[in-house]
Nucleic acid binder design. Structure first.
Lengths: 349, 349
DNA sequence: CCAATATACTGAAACGTTACAGATTGCCAA
DNA sequence: TTGGCAATCTGTAACGTTTCAGTATATTGG
């Protein structure tokens, strides 16, 4: 018969997860000492510290997240807030990988907090803050005057935005220089002799809408080209809509001879629309498009592309949030990614 | 001068998050009673129950996750385990949305647990189980003999796999019927008069590799068509490789007049390869491809597609895991999604 | 040699929750 | 009246962690 155990931790063969108590029993120390030894507190003797850390490593001790979280309030969680309908597809995938890349060797977990088109974008953020579910938050689809950023700033929770705001408030962000993108695109098209340019914009209301439109407008006047208004669509519209309206546009007398597109998926529809109208890409019209993965050149060789790296964005955003959590100044955690230029197909045909 | 507060919860105006203690103070009951009233325990009077729940709703009480987790071990977390390099892009995005859709009105959070090509796929799963970080796990890239499934079955942690296993063990899964996909694709091509078919397979080693290859082979002999071996690539290869090797294949004397592709991205490369070889899609060769978002027909009208719905997969997987957690029999939580048939372009030109 | 102080360690309390083992009340059968 | 019992409610302990307020021992200065 087994002798009844009085203390569960006396049974070293117990297959249960080790806790500080286990370590304390094994080393003959108190739990307080063990706790401090593990985090290199100064008032612990050097040898004791080493001994504790050795044993901890040996038996694979890992702090219980719930314990830590309950006691300290620290969740070790970063939350990525995503719109479940309107995000660019590769954005979701790449930004997640970018984030996980950075937090891989930290104790942080990534949770994805979704919200739908019909919800107030502030809802998920409010939930996270009110329930204290995360130490840091990453949001996308940033607006010039973004209530979410303002809210989190008020509540003092670290966050980073994908895209800049324009509220006179300082916070970490990562952004792609869409002003430069649009301007370079215009210059490139102008350099090819294109004179009447149309722009398929980002969603109206988001910060990078303005940046893109401004870059487009400034470069346009500088290059002496003119705009063919095409405000009827943005990249948030369905492929169907973009396609039909592009076809309509291209059938008009004064049609653009150059189009700039802010997203790859929209570009597929734009090209379809161009061809629906019986025109030829690269001949009647040239298209410069942003893309985040290298697909467009397989689609049509004639396309001109500018690459935006969402994985990089994810990494930068994660770094920013972690930095803020770690006490860095929010103003020092901002980054802007410059387009690498318009690239034409340099392929095997 | 403010009277010093002896109990923090006596100060009803405190802006702090309400706990059971707060509710207990407000209702004049004990915390135990409040706790039970909130979860509809039978030994609580009907009026008390209503009263407690009313107050709880009024002040916006939400259980502290760390408290629950520490006490009960329940994490209220579902973990989605993803390979950071080899997943299909739209898969990541769609499956996440599918999962979040289902867990939206549950207390569950979704955490994404990544692993890289160089890691043992068992690593992240082992981590999750050892640290008790999730109540349920979803894995993809399932293998016929999958160590992860075996491991989780041994440890008794609820999970669901995207793709079936073949170990004689029963567990929840969701799968797309890739046997049917390949067979239908073959039949469709044969019906068009195509006789020499090549298959671009899923990654060798994954469960759906076998299903796809079997469906291909069976339908092939049934239709009296022949296979042009093309084992040199799978959809896990780079676009470059697929493209080059397709071009090589298509330049040979005995080249396929029909190709079946298991993923949209690969299809882009395949088509590029076909055109590199100077052949015309829809004329010299037809291609049937799986896709998960409606892009391929914009790419080339001549493509034949079969749709796979990853968002549905995400929902089904989440439902399965929640079901298992909720006590349902694992064997009753399996689903297979049938292809809706090969669809040709029915577009506007 | 004593007091002061530095060094190394420790127990108890608390975070918010649930489970266990009562406690109190009212009602009914005997 | 009393014992039994159902119906409600309650205090305490525990989950694993960190922090507070110590304690014990060795070391130093005078």
């Amino acid at each position: 018969m087994d002798r009844q155990r009085t203390e569960k931790n006396e049974d070293a063969s117990a297959r249960e997860r080790p806790t500080l108590k286990t370590l304390a029993f094994m080393t003959g120390l108190g739990v307080t000492t063990v706790s401090r030894a593990l985090k290199d507190a100064p008032e612990i003797g050097a040898e004791t510290r080493r001994r504790v850390q050795l044993v901890a490593k040996q038996i694979g001790y890992r702090p219980n997240r719930a314990g830590v979280r309950l006691r300290t309030g620290k969740t070790n969680v970063i939350s990525l807030v995503l719109n479940t309908e309107q995000e660019i597809m590769s954005f979701v995938s790449d930004i997640i990988y970018g984030v996980t890349e950075v937090i891989a060797d930290t104790p942080y977990h990534l949770i994805v907090t979704p919200y739908s088109r019909s919800q107030d974008p502030l809802d998920p953020v409010r939930y996270l803050v009110e329930t204290g579910s995360a130490d840091g938050v990453i949001i996308s689809r940033t607006q010039p005057n973004d209530p979410r950023a303002r809210y989190m700033l008020e509540r003092g929770i670290p966050f980073a935005t994908h895209g800049r705001t324009d509220m006179g408030l300082v916070h970490p962000y990562h952004d792609f220089d869409n002003y430069a993108f649009a301007a370079e695109a215009v210059r490139h098209l102008a350099g090819m002799g294109r004179r009447r340019l149309a722009l398929v914009t980002p969603p109206v209301g988001l910060s990078y809408y303005r940046h893109t439109v401004d870059g487009f407008a400034d470069a346009l006047s500088e290059a002496g080209a003119s705009e063919v208004p095409f405000n009827i669509v943005s990249i948030d519209h369905s492929m169907e809509q973009i396609r039909t309206r592009t076809a309509q546009l291209m059938r008009r007398d004064i049609r653009p001879d150059g189009i700039i597109s802010s997203a790859a998926a929209a570009t597929l529809a734009i090209v379809a629309g161009i061809e629906d109208a019986g025109l030829k890409l690269g001949h009647d019209v040239d298209v410069v498009s942003k893309q985040s993965s290298d697909l467009l050149h397989l689609f049509r060789h004639e396309l001109l592309v500018v690459n935006e790296d969402f994985r990089l964005a994810g990494s930068e955003l994660a770094r920013s949030v972690l930095g803020w959590i770690g006490g860095a100044a929010p103003g020092s955690l901002q980054s802007l990614s410059e387009p690498k230029g318009v690239v034409a197909y340099r392929g095997s045909d």
